[in-house]
């Protein structure tokens, strides 16, 4: 009796997939860069699906998450000898430095991909992560040496969700970034700013979402809510009493664009529902969730989460 098996060729897609089942995530990223065919194998495996971040520092870098840690690729030349003169154009690195950080260790590798520019690298990383957008772009002090227009050109056509200018950036650089880089949302690191007035300038801009990661160093006033142009604000800088005043104003039908407000509090603080909802008619929906009615049939829910020390206000109608 003869048993006939199909003719073999060097490792088929099926066999490569078996091998990839045992391969470290970093090596799988390297494998994805061999050819279009290997990229498509890695894409089909759905191993990577984390958020992608860009960093503008002494070099232009991109990061992605892997099941065992994080990979950071330095996509541009470093410009280490910049003397503070005119910013230099962003130029793709011939050899990309790849930092692989896991809980146990951090190692650096050097990869080269013929014909790949900065945009090719970004698109490749996005593709293997099934990502439609860049989650954050961070501007650091060291980024001042890179010409901002060439950065804008490198990210042109991409959807970038959040802009962050990090502490240490000069005011001039921050203004330049604000002026040139247009993104959907903003992360605020308060000590980047000269004061609350600077921050308020951002509140009136057309960001969809503002996340204040300064943890309560900004004092929000009632007026701020009235002039705010964003739809979502995540912050920690609002006293319970101000939150109560905000809810009262919202109920009057005052034109407030804000649809979602999430306020974090110190874990030691007691989130007193009677202070938050003082003088506001409400219906308890379930544990720690309260429905309140606004003007013209609008409806919102206030969630008080003592475990996470968070109060959340979400407009569901109106």
């Amino acid at each position: 009796m003869n048993v006939v098996f199909p003719n073999r060729s060097p490792l088929s897609v099926k066999e490569l997939n078996h091998v990839l089942d045992f391969m470290e995530p970093l090596d799988q990223v390297s494998f994805s860069l061999i050819s279009k065919a290997t990229k498509s194998i890695i894409v089909s495996r759905n191993l990577f699906a984390g958020s992608i971040h860009l960093f503008v520092d002494d070099a232009f870098k991109i990061s992605m998450y892997t099941p065992d840690g994080k990979i950071i690729l330095g996509l541009s030349q470093k410009n280490e000898d910049w003397n503070g003169g005119d910013p230099v154009k962003l130029i793709a690195a011939d050899i990309v430095e790849v930092d692989h950080e896991t809980e146990e260790e951090s190692q650096t590798y050097q990869w080269r991909k013929e014909g790949f520019g900065i945009k090719n690298w970004i698109n490749h990383i996005m593709k293997i992560n099934h990502s439609q957008s860049i989650h954050h772009i961070y501007f650091y002090e060291g980024g001042e040496r890179i010409d901002i227009d060439s950065v804008v050109n490198a990210i042109g056509g991409l959807t970038v969700n959040y802009l962050c200018t990090m502490p240490g950036c000069s005011e001039r650089y921050r203004h330049l970034v604000d002026q040139k880089v247009h993104v959907e949302n903003l992360n605020i690191f308060s000590n980047t700013f000269q004061g609350n007035e600077e921050i308020r300038k951002h509140l009136i801009q057309n960001y969809s979402q503002i996340v204040d990661v300064s943890f309560s160093s900004i004092t929000f006033r009632l007026d701020d809510f009235l002039m705010m142009n964003c739809e979502e604000l995540f912050t920690a800088g609002i006293p319970l009493k101000t939150a109560n005043q905000f809810l009262k104003i919202w109920r009057t039908g005052c034109k407030i664009r804000l649809k979602k407000l999430r306020i974090g509090f110190p874990s030691t603080m007691i989130l007193d529902k009677d202070v938050i909802l003082k003088g506001i008619a409400h219906i308890e929906l379930e544990d720690n969730a309260y429905k309140i009615n606004g003007a013209n049939g609008s409806l919102a829910t206030v969630f008080i989460d003592p475990e996470q020390s968070v109060v959340e206000f979400v407009v569901s109608e109106g």
């Binding site: 490792l11 391969m23 470290e24 390297s30 494998f31 860069l33 590798y109 991909k113």
Partner: peptide, 15 residues
């Protein structure tokens, strides 16, 4: 594959 560049991997796996 450990620590190999894409070009090295291509040679190892004869791709």
């Amino acid at each position: 594959a450990q620590g190999k560049t894409p070009a090295q991997l291509r040679r190892v796996y004869l791709l």
